[in-house]
């Protein structure tokens, strides 16, 4: 408990009849943590509770050892936040706004340094309401680093960013964690990015934590025996391989991929049968590879749903 940067116990939150969080328990260790779930799963609700912006109906939560209900000011002094779709006052100039925000914190990098970190130094004199969506997002990221926080919450940090800015952002996260020991709590739908930077992840759906743990451990657990068959026509291939012996399951993934499940001892036999079936139906098979990404893991966890209690 003492080591966790976020500790959540039995957290429940209702909005009218809607149960946004249902007895959530979660321990987040220092490092880079990914919080994953479909839209409306409860990610932003949990973030709002952790910042003391809303109160839970039941349960409790601590951030850096401070209770979210009674010590939210102490938490906000020590964390940085990037909200999903951040909103800043429109008529203020970027540098003026960042300078004022920096003054809220006792110890912080300068406004100029923060803007430089996200490559926004050239936009310092532009008005907030004249920025593009990507620039706006980068200002939000810069502000999350104000006050030299020990923990930074990032809600969809790379939405609106181009590929180059995304790479820069992800590198910044890894670097800050490695060099300054800053922990990150990242909520995102771009799982390839989370897989790239996160040490641990948790999956949430319908207000319940389905699974959590080290990224590679979860990938190994949920994607063992699953392979991606890349072909010229996934629909026809799926129809053609039905009934192949030792093929435990097959599901279509987009227009060209089919995910199959087979035991390792039968794998070669299954692949050979798939290639034969594809040939007879004039479908090209470009390759078969382990389906072991975080995205594959997420789909499998969502498919299995919550564990029976």
């Amino acid at each position: 408990m003492g080591e966790s940067v976020v500790s959540v116990r039995g957290l429940t939150k209702h909005f009218g009849d809607i149960c946004a969080l249902d007895s959530v328990n979660l321990e987040v260790k220092p490092g880079i943590f990914g919080f994953i779930g479909p839209n409306g799963a409860g990610k932003t609700t949990l973030l709002r509770i952790l910042l003391g912006l809303i109160r839970p109906n039941n349960g409790s939560a601590e951030v850096l050892g401070f209770d979210t209900s009674s010590d939210s000011l102490a938490i906000r002094e020590r964390v940085g936040v990037l909200h999903e779709r951040p909103v800043f006052p429109g008529p203020i100039r970027v540098l003026e706004y960042v300078r004022d925000v920096v003054r809220f914190y006792g110890d912080s990098q300068s406004a100029e340094q923060l803007l430089k970190t996200v490559g926004m130094q050239d936009a310092a004199n532009r008005r907030m309401d004249q920025l593009s969506a990507g620039m706006y997002q980068r200002i939000g990221i810069a502000l999350a680093f104000a006050g030299n926080p020990r923990l930074i919450f990032l809600d969809e940090p790379t939405s609106n960013l181009d590929i180059e800015s995304r790479d820069r952002m992800l590198d910044l996260i890894v670097e800050e964690n490695k060099e300054s020991g800053v922990s990150f709590f990242i909520s995102s739908h771009i799982l390839s990015e989370l897989e790239r930077v996160c040490h641990n992840v948790a999956f949430i759906n319908q207000g319940r934590i389905l699974e959590d743990g080290p990224v590679q451990e979860l990938i190994g657990k949920y994607t063992a025996g699953r392979y991606r068959v890349r072909s010229s026509d996934a629909n026809r291939l799926l129809n053609g391989i039905k009934g192949i012996s030792h093929l435990d399951a097959a599901e279509i993934r987009g227009s060209t991929s089919v995910i199959i499940s087979a035991r390792e001892e039968h794998l070669e036999e299954v692949i050979a049968d798939i290639r034969r079936a594809a040939n007879s139906a004039s479908i090209k098979v470009y390759g078969v590879e382990p389906a072991c990404t975080l995205e594959d893991t997420f789909r499998e966890v969502m498919r299995l749903g919550p564990a029976e209690e």
């Binding site: 910042l51 912006l53 000011l73 906000r76 002094e77 936040v81 909200h83 779709r85 951040p86 909103v87 800043f88 006052p89 925000v101 809220f104 914190y105 006050g147």
Partner: peptide, 14 residues
Amino acid sequence: EDGTIRTILTHPIK
């Protein structure tokens, strides 16, 4: 309405 209250309240202000 415009969400700026959420932005400002994520900073350390009572």
